[in-house]
């Protein structure tokens, strides 16, 4: 059985974007979202929140998105965690660069709040497809 996407960990340093994204994901999208303002905070919260997916801003002061993802991979349950980046200026070669790093996809900023949750769910569904064989545990 495929469980639907419910729990998302979202890491973003800008409080304005946090707010609009929360509205899009929680109020419009019906997801349970935990927001962190830095990579450090995300690594701390990850084990207790047990998300099904992580959304990471790329450019953050201190620990940036790719660094956060790399650290996440070393945590229990983090190795196979689906991670998507959010970033401005998305061009096709950048998308493939982030995918090569191990991200399941990229959401471009600015995002459309009305469809953000759909975009996240679509990335999740696409990832589940590729995981098809490993469902039976």
């Amino acid at each position: 059985m495929t469980a639907p996407l419910e729990r998302v960990l979202y890491v973003e340093d800008d409080s304005d974007i946090q707010e609009i994204a929360l509205m899009a994901l929680v109020d419009l999208g019906g997801l349970a979202v935990k927001v962190c303002s830095s990579g450090m905070e995300a690594l701390k919260i990850f084990p207790e929140f047990c998300p099904q997916m992580v959304l990471l801003d790329v450019m953050m002061p201190g620990m940036d998105g790719p660094t956060t993802m790399a650290s996440l991979r070393t945590l229990p349950g983090g190795a196979a965690m689906p991670v998507a980046f959010m970033t401005a200026k998305v061009q096709s070669h950048e998308v493939s660069r982030y995918r090569d790093m191990g991200a399941i996809g990229v959401i471009s900023k600015p995002f459309d709040p009305m469809t953000l949750a759909d975009q996240v769910r679509a990335l999740w569904a696409e990832w589940r497809e590729t995981q098809g064989g490993t469902d039976a545990e």
Binding site: D16, I17, I20, P61, A88, P110, F111, D112, P113
Partner: peptide
């Protein structure tokens, strides 16, 4: 930081023109 935040939030807040010029500054 200011330029990057404006570039990121402008479009999502529904002010695409402001986001666009802020993105030029960010770049």
């Amino acid at each position: 930081r200011d330029a990057h935040q404006l570039a990121g939030s402008g479009g999502s807040m529904g002010f695409p023109e402001m986001g666009r010029v802020a993105l030029s500054l960010d770049v």
